[in-house]
Design a protein around this nucleic acid. Structure first.
Length: 297
RNA sequence: GGCUUGGUAGCUCAGUUGGUAGAGCAGAGGACUGAAAAUCCUUGUGUCGGCGGUUCAAUUCCGUCUCAAGCCA
């Protein structure tokens, strides 16, 4: 078993269509490493076309992990991802690891760890959601603020509101308190983060090209497959590309509409991803190859 | 050629009983600790189609022209 410090990891991050996967593949092949997924949609089996997941040829060139392994109706969570990731590392896996994807939340979860709280029982959460339904968000928000004055959760952000209340009532601690103590799952291996990005105009062209291919290569069939099996509510089916395709199928929209609306949603996704990565000052945005060489030597 | 209905923010449209206008979407910026390609927050000056007229005041009323859609010839 190699020493901890020999297990070098490279987070290859950036918006969708920024070229990170191609680079990761090339470098992993060159350095005899592996590619590990950290994209929230590429985890799912059956959504390869729409999420532009690595192809069979890519996987043949370099070992890929954590792709296409979660099946409907199961849904991925950041906590499960971390568990799966560390379990993966117990197996024989070739370093360096190129942890590739654009989901900032999962990258953060892996890098900094998560709150050390047990999973909250479903009924517990349901109870809070019932209260939300019955009394309105304002009441829960008041409770949040009175117990955790530092909380920045907005009244209208119901998902985060419920989660915050859930943590407070279940653990007796506030999210702010939990945040102040170091998570125990801090990433233990040496790593760097390499970022990919383009100008907006370049993304536009790449997205148009890519969308055309997603449609030609079968995103409609993928979507239809899950719709036919009754998985319309499955979370990943509401992600960029799939939700437009579902609407195309259900509302009888034209092909041109599909192409345009997927392009638009993808550009919006890219914008949000840029916002996420922009605040991470540790990402290395240029001289990728020499940064990598320095890190690996 | 005649009639009707429209021409208001990049788009779809509200609205002003006359005091120069507002939503949704798009765009821009931001947040983000177990749904995250999700969820949420902030951000709206535009010759209110052109030109005249009435009026203290017109995008709102009147006339006329123009463009679009529909109907009748």
């Amino acid at each position: 078993m190699a020493a901890l410090t020999d297990k070098k990891c490279i987070f290859v991050v950036g918006p969708t269509a920024s070229g990170k996967s191609a680079w990761a593949l090339e470098q992993a092949e060159k350095h005899g490493g592996s590619v590990v997924n950290i994209d929230s949609i590429q985890f799912y089996k059956g959504l390869e076309v729409g999420s532009a997941a690595p192809t069979r040829e890519d996987k043949h060139r370099v070992p890929h992990y954590l792709y296409s392994y979660v099946e409907a109706p199961y849904e991925m969570t950041a906590g499960k991802y971390i568990t799966d990731f560390y379990k993966l590392l117990e197996s024989e896996i070739k370093f360096p690891l190129f942890i590739t994807g654009g989901t900032g939340f999962y990258i953060q979860a892996l890098e900094k760890g998560m709150f050390d709280v047990e999973p909250v029982p479903e009924e517990f959460r349901q109870q809070i959601e019932d209260e939300l339904e019955k009394n309105g968000a304002e009441v829960l928000h008041q409770e949040l603020i009175s117990k955790d004055p530092q909380s920045k959760v907005h009244v209208n952000d119901h998902y985060r509101l419920v989660r915050a209340i859930e943590i407070i009532r279940y653990t007796g601690k506030t999210p702010s308190e939990l945040k102040s103590v170091q998570g125990k799952n801090i990433f233990p291996y040496p790593y760097i983060k390499i970022g990919f990005d383009f100008e907006k105009e370049i993304y536009k062209k790449r997205v148009a090209f890519r969308t055309k291919h997603l449609i030609a290569d079968g995103i409609i069939e993928e979507t239809k497959n899950f719709l036919d099996k009754g998985f319309a509510d499955w979370a990943p089916l509401h992600s960029v590309g799939y939700r437009e395709t579902a609407e195309f199928l259900n509302e009888g929209r034209c092909g041109e509409w599909l192409q345009e609306s997927i392009e638009q949603s993808t550009m919006q996704l890219i914008k949000k991803q840029k916002t996420w990565f922009r605040r991470d000052s540790s990402i290395l945005w240029s001289n990728h190859e020499s940064q990598l060489t320095d890190f690996l030597s």
